[in-house]
Design a protein around this nucleic acid. Structure first.
Length: 493
RNA sequence: GCGGGUGUAGUUCAGUGGUAGAACACCAGCUUCCCAAGCUGGAUACGCCAGUUCGAUUCUGGUCACCCGCACCA
């Protein structure tokens, strides 16, 4: 049974406890932008860390990377984003609704609409004649009252360079993946990795979406954790299954309830042009119509990206000749011997060169963070009172342990402070001596702190402290000198 | 973007064309040897900008933001 029934409850909880705030709130807010508060920042950091540990640190076949957000514009020409990462839209003059041109239906036969299409190629699409006189507005059913088709660009633009002369239009990356492909050669040359291997990266991406809405599920600025796993063509389907299972289990191992998690395979006509297969890991958020929302997509990107960048590398003359006019640059045709190109891999065992295939698990860190938060939330009756508690997996808990003196006298605060100082270098800890101890326990329950350590009268007699466990509220005694080791073991850190 | 709704303290809600109220939460002190106890005291709010008015949190207009639905998107 969902404890948080509506989006409002979640937003309210996030604000009240300092997990997530509206960005620029003192100025009335900025649409689609959110800030992580003290607890949220810790939680999100732990989500990142858990991803990195599972996908990079614990794997012998994956290395990490941290690319710049701004990259050479040709990266986006080669990847297709400069041409295709846009929608051709038109506005209905009657009701002002904006609709994608390729989604409009004919009045007569209801045909002509392409469903689930990817972003269109703006160059060619804009050049085409678009006769919209027979098209129906999906919002108000008016026929043929459309303005001229316009490109709606999904990449944020910015300018680099102080002088007008040497200014260059750059784009905020719409995905972190391309930075990995652009560094494929560097990683190969510097790390002695061999296919099959992966490169993982966590970082911010930006997409100027037409609409956002729904709290932090679709924001224009968001954080991705992406792995590009390079493998020999022919083994790609195997690795696809491998990462499907690995990523699904990652969520389960971090405490997401199984009934709230599922796969959803993409229909063939829903696939991006480069993808051979794609599946979403979805979480059932407890609001709306019990909406299943994507947390992560796992795609088989084939050898598309590396091959495209090989074409891009050959096209640099055009880049200089057109003074960087991406629209008028045409990527050079692919070399017939492309599989021996600069982004190919020489397989020592098979004694052959090839462009590896890529399996890409791409997770939304913000969505994941919220899913963990929502999934951990619980309310229960304790002596007629409602106890609200966040049952985070210990790895994700923003605070690992809280240290209390039972009362603020008899030397207890001194011992507690000493313990706190001893622990804070190893764990995120919290010290509190205010008010009744029961209140302090409950406060930590709401923050999701798995353990509370209380210094009491007995501490001075036998050097033990009370360890109070969040989920069961049970207490046990541990020698003060063994607390650090005890927590390490319990928290599995 | 469209339609509908909302915006008062940290949260959930009252209320008024003339000094803005509660509950819980928070802070300080007292008390307190184990689960939101008690007592005393305290701080904090009418989203923003205009207009009407002697006076606007209240009326009007605009704007910003959020929620629901549609559309869009993954």
């Amino acid at each position: 049974m969902a404890k948080l029934a509506k989006l409002d409850d979640i937003v309210s909880l996030c604000k009240r406890r300092g997990f997530i705030f509206q960005s620029s709130e003192i100025y009335g807010g900025l649409a689609s932008c959110y800030d992580y508060g003290p607890l949220g920042a810790e939680l999100k950091r732990n989500v990142r860390q858990a991803w990195w540990k599972a996908v990079v640190q614990m794997r012998d076949d994956v290395v990490g990377l941290d690319c710049s957000i701004l990259m050479h514009p040709m990266v986006w020409k080669s990847s297709g984003h400069a041409d295709k990462f846009a929608d051709l839209v038109t506005v209905c003059k009657k009701c002002n609704t904006r609709t994608r041109v390729d989604h409009l239906q004919d009045k007569t036969d209801g045909k002509g609409a392409e469903e689930h299409t990817e972003h269109v190629n703006i160059e060619t699409e804009a050049a085409k004649e678009h006769n919209l006189s027979n098209k129906v507005c999906p919002a108000c059913q008016t026929v043929g009252q459309f303005g001229p088709p316009m490109a709606f660009k999904l990449m944020f633009e910015t300018q680099m360079g102080a002088n007008a002369d040497d200014q260059m239009t750059l784009y905020l990356r719409p995905e972190t993946a391309q930075g990995i492909f652009a560094n494929f050669r560097n990683v190969l040359d510097s790390t002695r990795v061999k296919v099959p291997f992966g490169i993982g990266q966590i970082g911010k991406s930006f997409r100027n979406e037409v609409t956002t809405k729904a709290f932090i599920f679709r924001t224009r600025e968001f954080e991705q954790a992406e792995l590009e796993f390079f493998c020999k063509p022919g083994t790609d389907e195997e690795w696809y299954e491998h990462w499907k299972a690995a990523r699904f289990n990652w969520y389960l191992n971090l405490g997401i309830k199984k009934e709230n998690l599922r796969f959803r395979d993409h229909d063939p006509d829903e696939l991006a042009h480069y993808a051979k297969a794609c599946v979403d890991v979805e979480y059932k958020f407890p609001f709306g119509q019990g909406d299943w929302q994507e947390l992560e997509g796992i795609a088989n990107r084939t050898d598309y990206d590396l091959r495209q960048h090989q074409r891009g590398m050959k096209t640099m003359n055009d880049w200089y000749e057109t003074k960087g006019d991406l629209v008028n640059i045409k990527l050079k045709d692919e070399d017939p011997e492309y599989h021996k190109g600069p982004l190919s891999f020489f397989d020592e065992e098979a004694k052959e060169r090839y462009i590896p295939y890529v399996i890409e698990p791409s997770a939304g860190i913000d969505r994941g963070t919220l899913a963990f938060l929502v999934d951990a939330y619980d309310e229960e009756e304790v002596k007629g009172e409602t106890r609200s508690v966040l049952r985070f997996h210990p790895h994700l808990a923003p605070i690992k342990a809280a240290i209390f003196p039972l009362v603020k006298k008899d030397g207890m605060p001194e011992i507690a402070t000493k313990l706190y100082n001893d622990l804070k270098g190893c764990f995120t800890t919290f010290y509190d001596e205010k008010g009744a101890v029961g209140r302090r326990y409950r406060r930590q329950d709401e923050a999701g702190t798995p353990y509370c350590l209380t210094i009491d009268g007995q501490t001075k007699e036998d050097n033990t402290v009370t360890v109070r466990e969040r989920d069961s509220m049970e207490q046990s005694r541990v020698n003060i000198d063994q607390v650090k080791a005890y927590l390490r073991e319990k928290l599995d850190l």
